[in-house]
Design a protein around this nucleic acid. Structure first.
Lengths: 222, 222
DNA sequence: AGTCAACTTATTGTATACAATCTTGAGCAT
DNA sequence: ATGCTCAAGATTGTATACAATAAGTTGACT
C-alpha cells in the first residue's frame, strides 16, 4: 500500500534477507557493496534503506550507515507484548465477524498445522504456523489491522527463529491452536482473545528467559 | 528511533505539515517544488518522501509522484478501530503497572483537560486532550507500544480535525476521561480498557456517520 | 464533431561527481 | 607502554546531469 515505487523490488529483497535470516541483526549494510550486489547505483539503494528504516527493519545513524535492527532485550519484550495484543484484537474481531471464506481458510491452515505437528516436522510446522496466524489476521476483516500484524510478525521473525525448536513446544502450540479456533468458531470473542494472547506471549516469555540466561552468565559481557 | 538520518528535519517538517493540516489528504507533493521550498536538491526530498510513504503519511505511485495519503472511508474506519485497540492495550497496561511519575503526568494532563473543558476552550481542549492520551501511552511502560500509538494518532490527526467541534462532545469526552483515570488509578485493567476503547471508538463512529452522510446525498459522486 | 494517434512537455528514476563527516592508523609526547 | 593529535582513507550526504516514463496537446482521419 504505502511506498509502492519502482525500486520496490530492492526493498523487498533486502527485507526478505532480514526476515529469513540471510542478514542477521547488527549486520552492516554498506551502500556501495549493496549497489554492486544488485547492479545499481547507490541512489536506489539509499532510498530502499530509508524505507526499511522507517518500517523498523533497519537502523540508520547519520553519517555512520545502516545496520540490520538489533533491538535491546527490553524493547524486544515490548514488541512481543504488542504482537500479542494485535493478535488478540484479530482473534476477537474474527470471533465476531467470521465470514465463510475466512472460516474455510482458518480451518485449512489449522489442519495443515495439525498434520505437520503429528509428523513432527518442525520446518513444515514453522511454515504452516505462519499461514495459520495470517489466516486469523485476515479473518479480523480489518485489512489495516492485518497489515500491522503481518508487519510486526516479520520484524520479529529473525528472533523467533532462535527459539524455534524448543522441546515439545510444537505439540503444546498445536493444542493451543485447536482451542483458539474452537473459540473463534463458537463466536466467543473473550476466550479467543485470551487464548491467542497467551499463545503469543509464550514466545515473548521464552525469549525473555533466553535473554536473561544469556546476559547473566557472562558478567557484563556486551 | 528508526530512520534517524541527517535529512530528518525535512521528514519532520513534511510530516508536521500533514499532521497539522497545512497539507491536506490528496495534495500532490512535487519534488522540484519541495526542493525549492526547502532550499535543497531533489535527492534529500525524495528520501524524505520515501520514509513518509513507509510510515503511511504519503502515497507514492511509480512515475506518478507522491500525494498526501487519503485513505478510503473503509480503511479509515479500520484505522480508528486499531487506534481504539492500541489505546485499550495502553490503558490496560497502565492500570497494571502505573509508576508514580506516570500517575503524576496523567493526573496533570487530566486536570488541564478539565480546565479547558470548563472554560469551553475547544482549541485548548484539543491540545490538552492530546497530551492526556500521550500520558496514557507512556503510562503503559511499553515504549514500543507508545511509539505505535503516537504514530497512528498522528496519521489520524488530519481526519480527527474535521470533527473537532462537534456539539457538546467536549463535555462528554471529559467525563469519559475522568472515568478512565479512575479505573487506571484503581488498578482496574478491564474497566480501563473498556472505557478508553469506547472513548476512542466514538471518533471512528462519528467519522463513519460523517462519511456515509456525505457519500449518500450526492448520488454516486466520486 | 468526435476519436485516436503521435508528438511535445513535464515529472520521476538513476547514475555520477563532489562535499562533508567519520573512522583508522601512525607518530609523538608523557 | 599508554594516550593523544593529526592526517589519510573510507563512507555517507547532496547536487547535478541524464534517461525513462507518464501526462497533455495538437493534428489528422473517420
Amino acid at each position: 500500500m504505502a511506498g509502492s515505487t519502482s525500486n520496490r523490488p530492492l526493498r523487498d529483497a533486502l527485507e526478505d534477507d532480514i526476515v529469513t535470516g540471510r542478514l542477521s541483526p547488527g549486520d552492516r549494510l554498506d551502500e556501495t557493496t549493496l549497489a554492486a550486489r544488485f547492479g545499481v547505483s547507490r541512489t536506489p539503494i539509499r532510498e530502499a534503506l530509508r524505507q526499511l528504516a522507517a518500517a523498523g527493519f533497519v537502523d540508520i545513524r547519520p553519517h555512520r550507515g545502516a545496520v540490520v535492527s538489533a533491538p535491546e532485550p527490553r524493547r524486544m519484550i515490548e514488541m512481543f507484548e504488542v504482537m500479542a495484543g494485535l493478535e488478540g484484537m484479530c482473534a476477537r474481531l474474527a470471533a465476531r465477524r467470521l465470514l465463510p471464506e475466512d472460516e474455510a481458510r482458518v480451518k485449512a491452515t489449522l489442519i495443515a498445522c495439525r498434520k505437520a505437528a503429528r509428523a513432527g516436522d518442525t520446518d513444515a510446522y514453522y511454515y504452516e504456523n505462519e499461514q495459520f496466524h495470517r489466516a486469523i489476521y485476515a479473518a479480523s476483516a480489518n485489512g489495516f489491522l492485518a497489515e500491522q500484524a503481518v508487519g510486526l510478525h516479520k520484524r520479529l521473525a529473525p528472533f523467533r527463529r532462535l527459539q524455534l525448536r524448543v522441546r515439545n513446544r510444537m505439540r503444546a502450540s498445536q493444542q493451543e491452536h485447536e482451542a483458539i479456533v474452537s473459540a473463534i468458531f463458537a463466536g466467543d470473542a473473550d476466550d479467543a482473545e485470551r487464548l491467542i494472547t497467551a499463545h503469543v506471549s509464550v514466545q515473548g516469555e521464552r525469549f525473555n528467559d533466553l535473554m536473561s540466561s544469556l546476559t547473566k552468565s557472562p558478567m557484563k559481557a556486551g
